[in-house]
């Protein structure tokens, strides 16, 4: 029989300490900073500034 050398976490354990990656959070904050909304005659456009 195949030997298992790694202990598999239960689903409950997997749900503990779950956080998104720092890169994801950083991306969201950068996206937010770069996004500008332009109001053009009542219509709003989102533009990303580099």
């Amino acid at each position: 029989m195949r030997k298992l050398y790694t202990k598999k976490l239960s689903k409950k354990d997997q749900l503990k300490n779950l956080e998104p990656k720092k890169e994801t959070l950083q991306f969201l904050l950068s996206y937010s900073k770069a996004l500008r909304v332009v109001d053009c005659q009542g219509v709003k456009f989102g533009t990303i500034l580099n």
């Binding site: 994801t24 969201l28 996206y31 996004l35 909304v37 709003k44």
Partner: peptide
Amino acid sequence: QDTFIKVINTLKK
């Protein structure tokens, strides 16, 4: 990520 992009877009608009 997609969730918060929607949140950001909605709030900014």
